[in-house]
Simulated assay, not measured.
Amino acid sequence: MDPAPALYLRQPVGKALSTNRMFSPEEREKDRFFNEFFRPIGLVETLGGPLYSEQGSFAMIALIRGEDRRPFDDEDAARLERLMPHIARALQLRRSFFRIDARSLGLQATLDRLQAGFILLSYEGAALFVNAAMRAIAQRGDGFALDRNGRPLPANVEARQRFDALVDDVAKGGVGGILTVPRSSGRDYVMLVAPAPQPSTRSEWERRGPVGSTVVVHDPEIGAAPTVDILAQGLGLPNGAARLVASLAAADDLKSFAKAEGVTIHTARFHLRAALARTGAKTQAELVRIAVRLLRDFALADSPTRQAKPADVAKPARPGAKATLPDRPAPKN
């Protein structure tokens, strides 16, 4: 109901004007907002103007006085106009910082959902970011630790020397490489060391200096995400066909799937034909490639701290449904 903001935003950016100049005494006496809200709370005049208006975003500033203050004059308007460009710049910077912060938090949350451990190292070797999966790997104390700067420390001496050599190679402009890190239980970790992207804030001269590293750690023992649900929804497969495709993607065949599910080989082939028809794949191998690409891109952990164990069995989704492992159908007892 306040008519002033719309009129203020029609003024040139950086122009300050008082409502006593914008509205005549007759207009103020007839205005419902002025008489039913503004004056009853002790206010009588506003001095304001637009700070900026660009790409559908705008801002304005207003100073409001009561009857105990003198009316705004031209000198007050001139003082405010001198401040308005600085206030506008501060607001624009604030909006930019919020956008950068939101993007940073979003990217960090995405990396925290990855099943693989991820570390971003500066060229000095200190960790700029460590995702939840990598922190969980280090907390297990089985092959890895993180020093006080967040830098990964393989427990195996040869692996640590190889890792340090790859980080040094990247800092000098190399491409890095892959190594394995032994552990006391389970298959070895696989680690990738590669150059980190250069910050856009660094100057051209700074970009010629040492380069930071991105480190990715694959844990072959980690439990998989709910692959059946991903395949069913992503490829539009019936539940039986999705379980079959999940089994095939895990390197099983029709016979082992049929045995694990307690169904005949004819039922397994029926699910295969349904999966081929829904995906448009011509062969079983093509079907598996489609599924593996989808699962690779959607390789997000259920929870950053949850570590699935071989004995973990999901609860049935409905009465009579079969319990399944997170990554493949569970065999019947």
Rank of each mutant, 00 (worst) to 15 (best):
A155F: 12
T110A: 15
A4H: 02
E206P: 10
A291T: 06
P154I: 14
M134H: 04
Q139R: 13
D252S: 14
H271D: 10
G223R: 03
D2T: 06
E124H: 05
I64W: 04
F34L: 09
A145L: 12
L83F: 08
L153G: 00
D302S: 11
P326A: 15
L235A: 10
F34W: 09
D168E: 13
E75A: 15
Q92F: 11
P316R: 07
L93I: 10
R296W: 09
E221V: 12
G125E: 08
D142H: 05
S213R: 01
A196H: 05
A274T: 09
P25W: 10
F257P: 00
G223Q: 05
R293Q: 13
N131S: 12
D164T: 10
L272R: 02
T227P: 00
Q198N: 06
P238Y: 05
A155R: 04
M191F: 09
S185G: 03
N35C: 14
T180V: 09
T180H: 06
R89G: 05
P226L: 15
D76R: 06
E36T: 13
R103Q: 13
P199Y: 06
G14Y: 04
D252P: 01
L295Q: 03
R94K: 08
I178M: 08
P331D: 11
A314I: 10
L153A: 05
A102N: 02
A194Y: 02
E81M: 15
G174H: 02
M84F: 05
P238E: 12
R69K: 14
E221M: 14
M60L: 15
E75H: 07
I222N: 01
A275W: 04
A159F: 09
V216R: 03
G236W: 06
A308K: 01
A330I: 10
F270Q: 01
A77W: 03
V170Q: 01
D169P: 01
G150A: 12
P85G: 12
L272H: 00
P195Y: 07
F38H: 04
G49K: 04
A311G: 03
Q307A: 14
A116P: 00
D112A: 13
L120Y: 01
R135W: 06
F33E: 05
F23V: 07
K30M: 14
D169M: 09
A133Q: 02
E29K: 14
G177H: 03
A136I: 02
D164I: 11
A241H: 00
R140V: 08
L295R: 02
R99W: 07
S247F: 08
V193F: 06
V167L: 05
N239I: 15
Q233T: 12
P316N: 07
P197T: 11
E75V: 15
T305Y: 07
